[in-house]
Design a protein around this nucleic acid. Structure first.
Lengths: 147, 147
DNA sequence: GTCTTACTTTACGTTTACGTAAACGTCATG
DNA sequence: CATGACGTTTACGTAAACGTAAAGTAAGAC
């Protein structure tokens, strides 16, 4: 151990906005592990650059990972997320491929619209429960402002 | 094979509204398998009545299963769904338990509010993609009204 | 030059949420 | 009374999504 800040220059950015990220930077930012990010790459959801053997993530890579995490929060499988990401990468010259992608996009929209209703219904249920429980506790002299 | 309707009397209801359901009736209604419903019972999410050895589902049982399926569509694990269902069953006389349940309910509400935003963002993304792809296809003489 | 730290690959382990097969009871129909 | 169609339990199998060592590489710090 030494006194004073021991800085790893690969991680330190001296005030200048950088356009690349290490795997552990992104992991920390999104609250996941490097292992998880590598797994996403194994599954074909990402394809970061390399500096020798180490992975280097660009800003678009980071945006892509953000979409993956959002998809996960919505309960999608990695296969579904991959298909969603592929919609962005559809080749405009391949009419057939594009037409199929459009069809899939519309299906996803319909599915998400139902999910939107599900969320709103569940929220309504929970808010009803919350009010009932808060009232009940108030009537019995307990505070409802959490610990 | 015979001609005419072969009716299983356990399943047939002669016009009268019944208050009970068989496992396969519910499975068909919710698009799942009987195995799945039995698994939910094994995990403590349901506790239907019995007629001898066979399970008999009441209307509240059916409502409970509906909540489970909605939770699944939202991407919740069975453990999370169980905790959600337990909120309904909280004993009003146990102040401590009720207070904890209220806290959990509020956490779930906050989580769902973020999920609501996620859904809306993803929907916005997909609609943008859909418009772009539809325009592109239209400009290239393909119809966008699906096959 | 060694130490520390972060990165890498390979590979086996784990949890969740069921699927699937076996082996059996039961009840209405032909 | 045999045949389905439905129900039951028990138990092993499986796919998804990582966790968790093991063992090695590279690069700056002391």
């Amino acid at each position: 151990m030494s006194i004073g800040p021991t800085i790893d220059l690969r991680t330190a950015e001296g005030g200048s906005a950088d356009d690349t990220f290490t795997i552990s930077e992104l992991a920390a930012e999104f609250g996941i592990t490097p292992r998880t990010i590598r797994f996403y790459e194994d599954e074909g959801l990402m394809a970061p650059g390399r500096a020798g053997t180490a992975r280097v993530y660009s800003r678009p890579d980071r945006a892509r990972l953000m979409l993956i995490c959002r998809g996960k929060r919505l309960g999608f499988s990695l296969a579904e997320i991959k298909e969603f990401l592929d919609l962005y990468d559809t080749d405009p010259d391949q009419i057939g491929q594009m037409s199929y992608a459009l069809k899939r996009a519309r299906q996803r929209i319909a599915s998400l619209e139902r999910q939107l209703l599900d969320v709103q219904e569940t929220l309504a249920d929970l808010r009803e429960i919350e009010t009932a429980m808060a009232d009940h506790l108030k009537a019995h002299g307990a505070d409802t402002t959490d610990a």
